[in-house]
Amino acid sequence: MTRVKLPPWLVLLLPAFIIIAAVVLVPLLLSLYSSFTPYHLTRPDTLWKVNFPFNYQKALTDANFWAAFGRTVLLLTVALNLEMLLGLGLALMVSKVTQGQRLLRTAMMFPMMFSPILVGFQFKFIFNDNVGLVNNALQSLGLADRAIPWLVDGNLALFAIICAEVWTSTSVFAILILAGLYAIPQDPLEAAKVDGCSPWQSFRFVTLPFLMPFIYIAMAIRSLDVARAYDIVQVMTNGGPARRTELLWTLIGRTGYVDARMGYANAMGYVAILLSIAFTVYFFLKLQRARRDLGMGD
C-alpha cells in the first residue's frame, strides 16, 4: 500500500481549511441552496425540490417584506443619526470635564453592559401604558390627561424602540468620538483661534473634519448592529401591533422558525445581508475619503 504524500503547505493549511469549511462555508452554501427551494422544516423532502427564483420573486413582490425592509432602513437612518448627534454632544461635554473624567467615561459605558433582551424588557416597562414610567410621569406633570398607548400605536411603538436603541448604543459613538477628540493635534486648533475662528467655527472647520473618520467607523460598526436588530424589537413589541414594527430580521425569524418556511426565510435573509453590506460599504467609502482629506492615506 502506498501512502499519498501531500505537499507540506497543504498539510499545514488543512486544519484551517477544514474548520472554515465546517463552520462557515458549508452552512453558507446550504442556506444559499435552501433559499432556492421551498424548504419547509416539517417536510424535509421539500429540500430537494429546486425552484430557482421562486423565493426571491416572492420576497420582492411581498408587501410585508418591503414594509419591513423600509422600516429597517428608517430605523437605521434615524437611530444612527440620533446616536451620532447625542454621542458627539456627550463626547464634547465629557472632554471638557477636568475632574472625575475617568469615572464619567466608565459610567458612560454602562448601557453597553446590559443584555439587549433586558433593555427590551426595561423599556417595555418604561413605555407600558398602565404602569409605565413615561405615562405616569406625563400624567403626574399634567402633560397628558390619559394614558398614551406607546407600544400599541404603530408609530409610537417604533419611537419607543428607537429610544431603547439610542439609550443602549449612544455610548458606542461617544467613546469612539471621545477617542477622536483626544487624537486631535492642538496646533491647528490654536491656529484657528489666531485666524479668527469663534469656538463654533473652530469646531465646524477644524475639530469636525478631524472627527469624521471616527464618526464613520462608529457608523460602520453600528449600521451592522442595527441592520440585524432583532432582540429589543422581539421583546418590546414582537413586531406588532399588526406588523407595525416588523423589521427584516423579526420577519425572517418568524417566517423561518414560527411558520417553518426556512427556504423562504433564507431568501429574505440574503436580501437583508445585501442591505447590511451596502451600508457598510457606503460608510467605509466615506471613511476612506475622510481619511484621505486629512492626508492620512488610504
Binding site: 493635534p185 496646533d187 491647528p188 490654536e190 491656529a191 484657528a192 489666531v194 485666524d195 472647520f205 477644524v206 473634519p209 478631524f210 482629506d293 486629512l294 492626508g295
Partner: peptide, 14 residues
C-alpha cells in the same frame, strides 16, 4: 489682529 507661525506649522490638513 495678530498672526502666528507655529513650530509644527499647524496647517489644516484637510
Amino acid at each position: 489682529n495678530i498672526s502666528m507661525v507655529f513650530q509644527n506649522y499647524a496647517l489644516y490638513p484637510h
